[in-house]
Computed example of a mutant assay.
Amino acid sequence: MRHVDPDAAPEKPEVGVARRGGGVQKKIEDVVAEEAAKYPRRPVEVFASDEHRLGLKPVTRRVLAPIGERPTAPGHHRFDWLYVTAFVSPATGETFWYVHDGVSKPFFEKLLATFAREAKAGVDHTLVLVLDNAGWHGETGLRVTEGVRLIFLPPYTPELQPAETLWALVDEPIVNKHVETINALDEIVAKRCFALANERETIKSRAGFHWWPKIANSN
């Protein structure tokens, strides 16, 4: 917890973040317009993607408890991990979920191709995909499937990434609980992601940033 003097002036970086947010919005809108002009009969939809690491180290949150009683949660710190990658359309709430055991550029290239195929990129529509600057996302040496165009957020701006808002939903089944094995965690998280894929309104309520562009060339 950081204590702030109530009489202190607002910090300047907040203004910088606001300006970067406006810049991201314009950048996305410009790219959508370019892709819409290239293929006037093909809808252009903007997705966002992010990775989330979960493991056998417990996920804890504050909970309500009777006055005078301290809530407890069982836990056993172990450092085995798995990853969840989400691709989300904030405009529609559609999501594609993938659970895996590591991250790398070769893996991300294959994952991107899988997402493009399942989302029918280049067939039904063009997908503009917003990513952060993780090393394995970089365009250098990365083959990008036809029908997908990448856009990168400014550094250190997770608040501009709609997919970032989904991790609290993914964590819910394991919060303040002890999970015995990584296989058990894999099963719990996979079931949760499957369920969330059918909860588009819930996803939109989280990831549907007001400035996110709607589908272009939509009939």
Rank of each mutant, 00 (worst) to 15 (best):
D5Y: 04
D5T: 11
P6N: 09
D7E: 11
D7T: 06
D7I: 00
A9M: 13
E11N: 12
A18E: 15
R20T: 05
V24K: 06
Q25P: 05
Q25S: 05
K27T: 09
K27Q: 12
V31N: 02
E35S: 08
E35W: 04
A37S: 11
A37H: 00
E45K: 09
E45T: 06
F47N: 02
S49H: 08
E51M: 04
L54I: 08
V59G: 00
R62D: 10
V63P: 01
V63N: 07
P66Y: 04
G68Y: 15
G68M: 15
P71R: 11
A73L: 13
P74L: 13
H76F: 14
R78Y: 00
W81Y: 11
V84Q: 01
V84L: 07
T85Q: 09
T85W: 00
A86L: 10
F87Y: 15
S89K: 02
A91H: 07
A91P: 04
F96T: 11
V99A: 05
V99T: 10
G102S: 11
G102A: 09
K105I: 05
P106L: 05
P106E: 08
K120S: 13
G122Q: 02
D124N: 10
H125Y: 04
V128Y: 00
L129T: 01
V130I: 09
D132W: 02
N133Y: 03
A134W: 04
H137P: 00
R143M: 01
V148A: 09
P155C: 07
Y156T: 06
E159C: 14
P162M: 03
A163C: 12
A168P: 02
V175M: 11
T181S: 14
N183A: 13
D186A: 02
A190G: 06
A195G: 04
N198K: 15
N198Q: 14
E201F: 01
T202R: 13
S205D: 11
A207Q: 02
H210P: 05
N217H: 11
